[in-house]
Amino acid sequence: MTSSTLPAPVAAYFAAEHNPEALSRCFTPHAVMKDDGHLHEGREAIKSFMAEASAKYGATSVPITCDREEGVEVVRAKVSGNFPGSPIDLSYRFRLERGLIASLEITA
């Protein structure tokens, strides 16, 4: 899958995965992100979480598929990094709003 087949905000998210500042700009100011059982609300909280996760796990995500389900962009991606069970396929559920990510839920 190429980034050109992903909606622009989703492609920007994956392109910025190791740059927390750029990644945070992919989200609306009041966005919510749920990952690993934790909820992060707002750009600053998402940026802090992603900076910590990037430093700890060094994970790289490669999108495999992208489908639209009930107004949500669902991306399956292979994620590799410094964590038990690597690599793993994860599901990213993006709800977009005015060209930005309003919510993101990441699950196995």
Rank of each mutant, 00 (worst) to 15 (best):
L96S: 00
Y13C: 01
A51K: 09
Y57H: 12
I46G: 00
P9D: 00
L6W: 05
E97S: 10
R25Y: 08
P20W: 05
D67T: 15
N19A: 10
V10F: 01
S48F: 10
H40C: 05
R25I: 05
I101L: 08
E17Y: 10
P9E: 04
S48P: 11
T28G: 04
L100Q: 02
E105N: 09
R93F: 07
V74R: 11
K34E: 15
A102F: 06
T65N: 02
S4G: 06
R76M: 08
R76S: 13
V62C: 05
C26N: 01
T107Q: 14
R98M: 03
E17T: 14
L100A: 06
C66S: 06
L104N: 00
A15I: 01
P87L: 11
D89L: 12
F14W: 04
A53K: 12
G42Q: 06
T28C: 09
V79A: 04
L104E: 01
M50P: 00
E69S: 12
S91K: 13
R98N: 13
E17F: 14
S91M: 08
D36Y: 14
L39F: 06
A16F: 04
A45F: 09
S24Q: 00
F83P: 10
L39D: 10
A59S: 13
T107R: 14
A102S: 13
G99H: 00
H18K: 07
T65V: 03
L23R: 01
G37C: 03
S4V: 08
E97M: 08
